[in-house]
């Protein structure tokens, strides 16, 4: 069954490539056919430039678009419409947006783009929300997942450094609560992997408790092989899935 499918796929790929080549060839020929006989002196191609100032605004604030074109008879900006060959305009985009200017002239078409990034609503008192956000960020940066050998829930010596570093960070941030998820690779049975994942989560918890972290800060849950990080059937991927994964909770 599998072999037959592989063979079929082997056939399909060259056919698809061949078809693509045919189509590309057809596209390439078309303009040649419709192009007029070479003009005696081709008109100069248009040029175009577009800029936004400032290029990053808070939501609700305005930015100024400025543009310049030459040798263009028809100038448009997507989302704004036809505009003068040279000019400027105020815009107040709701979300981050890339403005695209198209200048068409006898000598061809030229495009220019400018991006305005819209940041989230103005954060007036940056003092209050910042620490908790950075605490979670710091947690995610400082705490490394613990990886396991196959069918093992023992914390190997090369993971002890991670445990100690995590314990140190957690001692400095005593308000953080978190959970440890036990994960397994896709091989073996669903039920056994749930039990094994539970052992893994508890191994990590116990190691942290031994290193001085209060047990009531740590929740454990097993996901067995239900929520893999990586879904390929390779040893590399399996190793990534055999882990105790930390999730920040408050």
């Amino acid at each position: 069954m599998n072999k037959a499918m592989k063979q079929a796929r082997r056939l399909v790929v060259p056919i698809a490539v061949f078809a693509a080549v045919l189509m590309l060839g057809a596209c390439g020929k078309k303009p040649v056919k419709t192009a007029p006989p070479p003009p005696p002196s081709p008109p100069a191609g248009p040029s175009a430039s577009l800029s936004a100032n400032p290029n990053s605004v808070a939501k609700g604030e305005a930015a100024t678009l400025t543009w310049e074109t030459t040798n263009a008879t028809d100038v448009q900006i997507d989302g704004i419409g036809p505009v003068n060959p040279t000019g400027s305009r105020q815009v107040t985009p709701a979300d981050s947006i890339t403005y695209r200017l198209i200048a068409k002239g006898a000598g061809g078409t030229q495009e220019a783009t400018a991006r305005v990034t819209v940041t989230a609503a103005t954060p007036p008192p940056p003092v209050q929300t910042a620490p908790s956000a950075t605490e979670e960020q710091m947690f995610n940066q400082s705490i490394k997942d613990i990886s396991f050998g196959y069918d093992s829930y023992a914390i190997s010596s090369d993971q002890q450094g991670n445990i100690q570093a995590s314990a140190q960070f957690l001692a400095q941030h005593p308000g953080i609560h978190f959970s440890v998820e036990g994960h397994c690779d896709e091989r073996g049975s669903t039920e056994y992997n749930l039990a094994l994942g539970d052992n893994r989560a508890n191994s990590v918890k116990n190691a942290l408790v031994q290193a001085g972290v209060a047990a009531d800060r740590i929740r454990t849950i097993s996901y067995g092989k239900e929520k893999p990080f990586c879904s390929e059937h390779t040893e590399d991927c399996w190793q990534q899935n055999r882990r105790g994964h930390f999730v920040y909770q408050k």
């Binding site: 829930y153 049975s189 039920e191 056994y192 749930l194 039990a195 094994l196 539970d198 052992n199």
Partner: peptide, 12 residues
């Protein structure tokens, strides 16, 4: 009532 006492997974 708990019926096994061995460390490691006991399941199914």
């Amino acid at each position: 009532k708990r019926v096994t006492t061995s460390p490691g997974p006991d399941v199914s």
